[in-house]
């Protein structure tokens, strides 16, 4: 288990500031939800934490270690997993191969040139049990390119879980899922919760009330309210800036 600390993160695209002095601290076993209107800078923040984008200033600490300058792959090796808001999988790989290669990254060297990787039972077992966990086991042999949108969302999560993260960044995992699929996914995430700390970007307030210990409300790149889900809901600024807007 891990902790994640974000200290005074700033990021601009030209004149557009997408992160303003963002500081968030997430302790062991905590689920922290990040909410905010479209374009608030939620995905951009996830990109900076995972290393896809570099902040202009500020620091990111995983387990107290400064990872701000680390490459994306090293952050993953250090235990930081993530999912993408826009599904990102390996289209020509089957669901099983997608998860198996994610597991491979965390079990020994990948500089092995001779043995048939598809026959490594240890990797395939992790892959299959992860697919089982998200409910995709019966689709294991299907190429990702042929999976439905909902299935891809689940595969996206399975890939991240197969890499055995110590901390998980989830960017709108429920986006585009049907009602029953969402319910199943919330159930799965609440199972993980407690053993896997996470930063969850989500629009669905029901899900947030079920999953999150604490919430930050991001507007125009700035955290304008934070606290427990109830506190944030009660926060007037929040109601005006976000919840009210949603109700309208």
């Amino acid at each position: 288990m891990s902790t994640l600390e974000i200290r005074k993160l700033n990021k601009s695209f030209g004149a557009l500031t997408v992160s303003r002095d963002i500081s968030i601290s997430i302790g062991e076993g905590q689920c922290h939800a990040l909410i905010g209107p479209n374009g608030a800078g939620k995905t951009t923040l996830i990109h900076q934490i995972s290393g896809v984008l570099r902040p202009d200033s500020g620091h990111i600490l995983l387990d107290g270690q400064d990872i701000t300058q680390m490459s994306v792959s090293r952050r993953v090796q250090a235990g930081l997993g993530r999912t993408f808001q826009i599904t990102s999988v390996l289209p020509s790989f089957t669901a099983l191969e997608n998860t198996a290669i994610a597991a491979q990254a965390k079990s020994g060297s990948s500089l092995r040139f001779f043995r048939d990787a598809s026959r490594e039972t240890a990797l395939n077992e992790i892959a299959l049990s992860t697919l089982q966990r998200v409910g995709l086991a019966d689709r294991a042999a299907i190429p990702a390119a042929d999976l439905s949108h909902g299935e891809l969302r689940l595969l996206e999560l399975a890939i991240s879980l197969a890499g055995k993260p110590k901390f998980l960044l989830l960017d709108e995992p429920m986006a585009g899922l049907g009602r029953s699929e969402s319910v199943a996914l919330v159930a799965l995430l609440s199972e993980l919760r407690g053993s896997l700390p996470m930063l969850l970007v989500e629009h669905d307030m029901d899900a947030i009330f079920q999953l999150a210990d604490t919430v930050s409300l991001l507007v125009d790149g700035q955290v304008v309210a934070r606290g427990t889900p109830d506190e944030v809901r009660a926060d007037a600024a929040a109601r005006a800036a976000y919840l009210g807007e949603n109700a309208a």
């Binding site: 995972s50 896809v52 490459s71 994306v72 792959s73 090293r74 993953v76 090796q77 993530r82 993408f84 990102s88 999988v89 390996l90 289209p91 020509s92 790989f93 191969e97 290669i101 994610a102 491979q104 990254a105 965390k106 060297s109 990948s110 500089l111 092995r112 040139f113 001779f114 043995r115 048939d116 990787a117 598809s118 490594e120 890939i159 890499g163």
Partner: peptide
């Protein structure tokens, strides 16, 4: 033939398919 089916070859194909994802799986592409 062996390389293409090995762990290494699999990472190479993953990087061809979707380099950003391969990187976020933990591979320095």
């Amino acid at each position: 033939y062996r390389i293409s089916r090995s762990r290494f070859g699999r990472v190479l194909r993953a990087a061809r398919d979707n380099p950003e994802r391969a990187e976020v799986m933990g591979y320095p592409v």
